[in-house]
Write a protein that binds this DNA or RNA. Sequence first.
DNA 1: GTCATTTTCGTACTTTAGTATGAGTGTCCA
DNA 2: TGGACACTCATACTAAAGTACGAAAATGAC
Lengths: 143, 143
Amino acid sequence: MLNTTLKKIILIFGALTLCVLILFRLSSYIVVSESVAVEWIIAGFAILFFVIGIFLNKRSLQKKQLATPTEIDRKMIETLGISKREYEILVKISEGCSNKEIGEALFVSESTVKSHISNLFSKLDVKRRTQALQRAKELKIIG
Amino acid sequence: MLNTTLKKIILIFGALTLCVLILFRLSSYIVVSESVAVEWIIAGFAILFFVIGIFLNKRSLQKKQLATPTEIDRKMIETLGISKREYEILVKISEGCSNKEIGEALFVSESTVKSHISNLFSKLDVKRRTQALQRAKELKIIG
DNA sequence: GTCATTTTCGTACTTTAGTATGAGTGTCCA
DNA sequence: TGGACACTCATACTAAAGTACGAAAATGAC
């Protein structure tokens, strides 16, 4: 990540420096020829850099959006003291499974599932599984 | 929506026109005084508009992201034959509400809520509310 | 007005969810 | 070795959730 970011920064600054140098050469020639008003040159470059700014910014923001669709906050899971088993069951709940189905999927009894769910609910501070889903999403601990 | 967009466009173009006018005045004075090189004036305005471009673009993209985190497929809702009331209840389910709470929120009895939910479930082809949520999300009919 | 659909509500019932309590097992660490 | 913790399971209970009828009023289109 850091290498990629550094490379980008170097590339962008390099490109900008190049642009400024080209700009200097061009403006000298144009000013010397005296055929065009200075205001139009300035306006042209202003618009050019305005567009460049928009373009670069749009690309960087788009990549950011694609890179992180929904990042899971594993630190939050630890903070809440949610164990592996409890989290597995939370995922199963988000898949729409009943307690019985969860038990069959994880090879434990329905009683066990209920125990885990009760503990999970108190850790999430909720009363129902639908509430648990909503809370888990806002805490970004499920996708 | 259209009014807001139009207003924004008018405002932005107005601001840009104003900037260009100010730019003309300033450049005239500076060029006349001959105390600064023309290149530096151009470079200054280029950087200025570069920054303005980034700023405007960032703001517009941020608003877009907040406004539509996940686009809702309203055509799918029609296709499935889900009525307004049923959809309202689906949203309430996604907020973690119990049938009782939904009834209180929509000013109807719990029986009515149950009726709607039964119809909704058959339209979504599910058996439980957690399944309904999962299905509604993969069909992109809730956020 | 008539017809289809939506919305509303009820009762009776079955199933699932969730709580409370207790207890056995295994693991890891001090 | 003793304690903290996670995982397991059971029983008994209460509370929601969901189904299956039936039925009345409101809405909107034809």
